[in-house]
């Protein structure tokens, strides 16, 4: 559905030129649900705007829905749906009128556009709001109308730019249930940007992480988390000395005297992926498989005479993946725009 090669966009700001997107290669097969994740200013929207023909790339090529974005933008436009970051329905127009206009834009006759508008109003539970103007709709209702506008011509590929931003949890869940239902019913390929980590994690089959205009990770959320972040183990001890000892054991620096302890210690050391962090009586470790490593670790600590007060394991989030890759947290600077 999408094949991009070396997609680059440079913006000229006064005399400086800013490289917003730096040579992106991307392939999306039909039927996939891809989440494009990254902090603000990473190049998510710029990439999306290039793929949807809103912005010509400075260099690089892309075919979207079988058409070249530079040579046949009209062909691309006829085959894709786009739900932008801002609201698609004009303030001055009634919901149904905008849907009819949208149908006419894709070449439907007035009668066909009217029928399609009614279908979509039903599909997205907007029927009672048909004669209302967007200003009188709630955030979730407006978003559903935006999505309806993107679906008028039954596109095989739908781009959504931050579809759930600014919505309350209930409306977000509601918008998502509509998106997923659509996909199930029509097999639509979905390419969306989001900065909600949990959303990308739970909804998308494939997560593409972009930072500083470059793709830095690409895969299923599960694989990214396993390969790039690993689980976390957090234990607390009764004293700070014991915490320091526990960290040294994890890092393999302390010898464990009890019988068999050395072997176990080595196993723990092998499992640990990064240096243990100590903060007061708390020790944090990163391991590939916490469920397997924790019992070993606790046994080793017990053999070394370290009293563990609490122990917990945490599955990594996509934020941990981003942190591992960039040394920054996605949530730090990623405020909703």
């Amino acid at each position: 559905m999408i094949h991009a090669r070396g997609l680059t966009r440079v913006f000229k700001l006064k005399k400086e030129s800013v490289e917003a997107v730096r040579g992106i290669d991307l392939d999306v097969e039909a039927g996939q649900l891809v989440a494009f994740l990254g902090p603000n200013g990473a190049g998510k929207s710029t990439t999306l705007r290039m793929l949807t023909t809103l912005l010509p790339p400075t260099s690089g090529t892309a075919t979207v829905a079988g058409r070249d974005i530079a040579r046949d933008p009209a062909g691309v436009r006829a085959r894709i749906g786009y739900v932008g970051q801002r609201h698609g329905a004009g303030e001055n127009f009634r919901a149904r009128d905008e849907l009819v206009t949208q149908g006419r834009c894709y070449g439907l006759t007035p009668a066909a556009a009217g029928r399609r508008a009614d279908e979509l109003l039903d599909l997205l539970d907007l029927r009672p709001l048909a004669q209302r103007k967007p200003g009188t709709l709630s955030g979730g209702q407006r978003r559903r109308l935006d999505i309806a506008l993107g679906l008028v011509h039954r596109p095989g590929l739908l781009f959504l730019d931050e579809p759930s931003t600014g919505l309350d949890p209930k409306s977000r869940a509601d918008v998502w249930s509509h998106i997923l239902r659509l996909r199930e019913a029509y097999g639509t390929t979905l390419f969306l940007t989001t900065h909600y980590l949990e959303e990308a994690d739970s909804m998308a089959e494939r997560v593409v992480i972009i930072d500083n205009g470059e793709i830095i990770a690409d895969g299923t959320a599960e694989r990214l988390k396993n390969d790039l972040a690993g689980d976390r183990i957090t234990i607390t001890t009764t004293t700070e000395q014991e915490a320091a000892m526990a960290a040294r054991i994890a890092d393999g620096e302390a010898a464990v005297e009890a019988t068999g302890g050395a072997a176990v210690g080595a196993a723990v050391e092998a499992a640990v992926e990064a240096k243990a962090e100590v903060q007061g009586t708390t020790v944090r470790l990163r391991v590939a498989n916490a469920a397997a490593a924790l019992p070993e670790y606790l046994r080793t600590l017990e053999a070394a005479g370290v009293k563990v007060a609490t122990a917990e394991t945490i599955r990594p989030t996509l934020d941990d993946v981003f942190l591992t890759l960039t040394g920054r947290s996605l949530t730090d600077d990623d405020l909703p725009a």
């Binding site: 809103l54 436009r77 609201h87 698609g88 949208q102 834009c105 894709y106 935006d146 506008l149």
Partner: peptide, 13 residues
């Protein structure tokens, strides 16, 4: 400034 014109420019209009 809203998104409605952008929406129309992504159609073949």
């Amino acid at each position: 400034l809203g998104g409605s014109l952008e929406r129309l420019t992504v159609t073949p209009l």
